[in-house]
């Protein structure tokens, strides 16, 4: 019964991981950029949330209403300046520049905001739960986060397939030159994709640090980026539903690892996810749903 509970908790966590990863997947799909600062941007979003809560006194869980648009606008400008400049110079430059950005963000946060851990207050609602049987207890907020994550993936799918901007994003992703000949400003489209990516990562950051974990400046590089990339690789690049599948696999595997490790080996949680990731890379390099040949 304890294993059933682990799997359920893993699925709940997996929805959040998918939300983390979908921005990374979108940026890779559209711009062929793996943003190594992805995890740090989630941490930045969490600090922005703290600032928003301090200034406006809105309840913690609702801070995303302001944080998501702030981060989305930031993402647009980040794309139009730094990332655009580096991606015009090649894949390796993009990797090095986003890695540098990641380290610089982490160091700036450490310098100005100290290494202290924080949490986003989620009130009494954060601990409210309902039980099935004697061993399974499901938090309401966990469930809501899973529903939100799936809804965001659905909306994103719908947006990409139906809306005008979504069609432009797909056109630019398929063939940048041809889309530009047809009148699309690909830099602006890239900016929109980056704004969506950072909006989702901000939402995921607020939810994750409100619900599951404390945050400090170092958690972005060490953990979140690796989680997001593991989800994308396990699920297969370029597929939003693959991302959801990857998130759930990672969440369940981590919960099982945590159960095996117990209190004596808390790092088994991360180790289990990482070993599954490496196994997928070796055995199934295109992921669970991978049909595209990846670089």
């Amino acid at each position: 019964m304890i294993w059933v509970n682990d799997i359920i908790q893993g699925i709940l966590l997996g929805g959040l991981y998918a939300l983390f990863a979908c921005g990374l997947s979108l940026m890779f799909g559209v711009m062929k950029v793996i943003n190594l600062a992805h995890g740090d941007l989630a941490v930045v979003a969490a600090y922005v949330a703290l600032g928003v809560i301090a200034l406006t006194h809105i309840p913690g869980v609702w801070s995303f209403v302001l944080v998501v648009p702030i981060m989305a606008v930031g993402g647009y400008f980040l794309q139009r300046t730094l990332i655009q400049a580096s991606l015009e110079r090649g894949t390796i430059t993009t990797l090095l520049v986003t890695f540098g950005l990641s380290i610089v963000i982490e160091t700036v946060l450490l310098q100005f905001l100290s290494a202290n851990s924080h949490g986003i207050p989620d009130g009494s609602f954060g601990t409210a739960s309902f039980s099935i049987g004697s061993q399974i207890s499901i938090g309401w907020l966990d469930l809501i986060i899973l529903v939100v994550a799936v809804t965001v993936l659905l909306v994103l799918q719908f947006y990409l397939s139906r809306s005008r901007n979504g069609r432009l994003i797909r056109a630019v992703a398929d063939d940048r030159e041809a889309a530009q000949l047809a009148g699309a400003d690909y830099r602006h489209i890239f900016g929109i994709a980056a704004a969506i990516a950072l909006g989702t990562v901000a939402l995921a950051g607020v939810a994750y640090f409100g619900m599951y974990s404390q945050f400090d400046p170092t958690i972005g590089t060490g953990q979140l980026l690796l989680y997001a990339f593991e989800v994308v690789v396990i699920g297969g690049l370029g597929s939003l539903w693959g991302t959801l599948a990857g998130g759930i696999v990672l969440g369940v595997v981590q919960q099982i690892g945590a159960q095996i490790g117990g209190a004596a080996h808390p790092d088994y949680q991360f180790l289990a996810g990482q070993l599954v990731f490496l196994a997928v890379l070796v055995v199934l390099p295109q992921g669970l749903t991978g049909i595209r040949r990846t670089a």
Binding site: F28, I34, L36, T91, I92, L95, F99, G222, L225, L226, F229, E230, V233, D267, F270, L271, Q274, L275, F277, L278, L281, V282, P285, T294, A295
Partner: peptide, 24 residues
């Protein structure tokens, strides 16, 4: 042997993951 077929971002992050597995 584990990383040999990977390039660019895949290689970067997979090597990072291997390092943290070694650390663990």
């Amino acid at each position: 042997w584990l990383l040999r077929r990977l390039r660019t971002a895949y290689f970067a992050i997979a090597s990072w993951v291997v390092a943290s597995v070694l650390a663990a």
